[in-house]
Simulated scan of single mutants.
Amino acid sequence: MASDELAVEDTTPSNDYYESTSSTSTPPVYNFRRSTRQRSNHYYRVERIPEVSAIFNYEKSTRLEVLKWLRRNEDNNHDVIYINSESITAEKLYELCDKHIWFSSDHINAYLSYLNTKFHRVFSLTSFFYTKLTKNDGYKYSSVEHWTKRIKIFQKDIIFIPINLNEAHWILAAIFMKEQFRIAIFDSLGMVTTEDAVIIGGNLINWLNDEYNHKVKLGKGIACEYDSNVIEEINLNRQVDFSLDIMFRNRDPPQVDGSSCGVFVCMFARLMAENIEREIIMKIAKCREASIKFRKVIYTDLWKYAKENNQMDTESEDYDEYE
C-alpha cells in the first residue's frame, strides 16, 4: 500500500452500533444494535475481489492434520511450532478452527512472526512491545531499546505493532516508513478515540526518533546500513513528522462479533504486506466471511510453515475418525 493513499479519518463512532459491557482481561462482550445500513454494507465476497482471492485460499485438510497432531502430542512436550523467536502450541493452533475463540498474544505473535519470514519488506513487533514501551502509562525507550538490535527497521516499508486496549480489544498500528512517515490505526470495532490514537502515534514516533538517535546517529559506522533518504529527512527536521489515519472511524466498523478483533489484526497486516491498496482493504473488511475464512488461512499458513521446517511428525494415518 502506498503511503500517499492514507488519508485522515477523524469522526467519532456512533453508539448506535455497539456497546462494550466488559473491560476485564477476558474477551469483551458486545451488545450489537446493527442498523439496516450497516447490515447492507456487508455484502462483498472475497472470492469476487480478484486482488485478494488467492490470499484467502486455505487447505481443508489442515484442520484434521492439526487435530491429529494435537491428540498425538497431548501427553508430551513435542507439540510446539517455532516461528523465529515465537512459538505456538498444537492446542493454540487448533483453537483457530473455532470462530468463537478470542485470539491470545500467542496467536497474533505467531502469525505476525510468520509474516516477517514471508515478506522481508515488513517487520512486525510483538504484542508485548507497546506495553513495555508505555509501561505505567508513560514512555520508556530503555524498556525496548534492544528489541530491534538485529533489525534494520529504517530499511523496511511497513512496521506492524499489535496493541491490546485495556486487555479487552486488539488493534493494529502500522508505520509506513517510506517517503513520509504515516501511521494508520486499524480498529475493527471503531472504538479508538482521536485522543488515544494521537497518543499511540506520538509514542511510536518518539520510539522511531530514539531508534535513530541510538542506532544511527550515535552508532558510528552503522549509518551506512540505513536508507540515506530517510536519515536526511530526519536530520533536516530533527524529528520525524507524521500523519495519522484512524481507520473505520467515519464509517461502519467491520467487526460484527465480540471475538474476531485479533483475526482482523492478522488479516490487515497480511493485506498490507501483500501491497493491497487501502480502499481494497476497506472493501474486504465488509465481507461477511472474510474474518472466518482468514482464521483458516492462518492455521493453514502456520501448519505449512511447520511442515516445511520439519517441526512435527506428519506420517500419514487414517483421519476418518475425526471427521
Rank of each mutant, 00 (worst) to 15 (best):
D4L: 03
D4R: 09
E5T: 14
L6Y: 14
E9M: 05
T12C: 06
N15G: 01
Y17G: 08
T21D: 10
S23M: 07
T24G: 15
Y30W: 04
F32T: 03
S35Y: 08
S40I: 00
S40Y: 07
N41H: 01
N41G: 01
Y43C: 08
Y43T: 13
Y43V: 13
R48W: 01
P50Q: 09
N57R: 11
T62N: 07
L64T: 12
L64A: 12
L64I: 11
K68D: 14
L70P: 09
R71S: 01
D75V: 08
N77C: 06
Y82W: 06
I83G: 12
I83W: 13
S87W: 03
I88W: 13
A90N: 15
K92E: 09
L96Q: 05
I101F: 10
W102L: 00
S105Q: 06
H107R: 07
H107A: 07
I108H: 13
S124H: 14
F129M: 03
T131W: 00
K132A: 03
K135S: 05
D137Q: 12
D137W: 08
G138I: 07
G138Y: 07
V144M: 11
V144P: 14
E145L: 11
H146R: 14
H146N: 14
T148D: 04
K149Q: 14
R150H: 12
K156S: 07
F160I: 01
P162D: 01
I163C: 04
N164L: 12
L165P: 06
A168N: 11
A168H: 06
W170L: 02
L172F: 02
A174S: 12
A174E: 04
M177W: 03
Q180S: 10
F181N: 03
I183G: 04
S188M: 06
L189W: 10
T193L: 05
T194S: 11
D196R: 15
I200W: 07
G202S: 12
L204Q: 11
L204C: 07
L204M: 13
W207T: 09
D210T: 10
E211C: 08
K215E: 07
I222C: 11
I222H: 09
A223C: 00
A223S: 06
C224A: 03
E225Y: 15
E225C: 06
Y226P: 00
D227H: 07
S228R: 08
N235Y: 05
N235K: 14
D241V: 06
D241K: 10
S243W: 03
L244W: 05
I246W: 06
R249E: 05
N250R: 11
P253F: 04
D257I: 09
D257V: 14
G258N: 14
C261S: 15
V263F: 00
C266Y: 09
C266D: 01
M272I: 15
A273T: 05
N275A: 08
R278S: 05
I280E: 08
I281W: 10
A285E: 13
A285P: 15
K286V: 02
K286C: 12
K286E: 08
E289K: 15
S291E: 10
R295V: 03
V297T: 08
I298S: 06
T300L: 04
T300E: 02
T300W: 06
L302C: 04
W303L: 00
W303Q: 00
W303C: 00
K304A: 05
Y305C: 02
A306W: 12
N309S: 02
T314F: 04
S316T: 11
S316I: 14
D318P: 06
D318F: 05
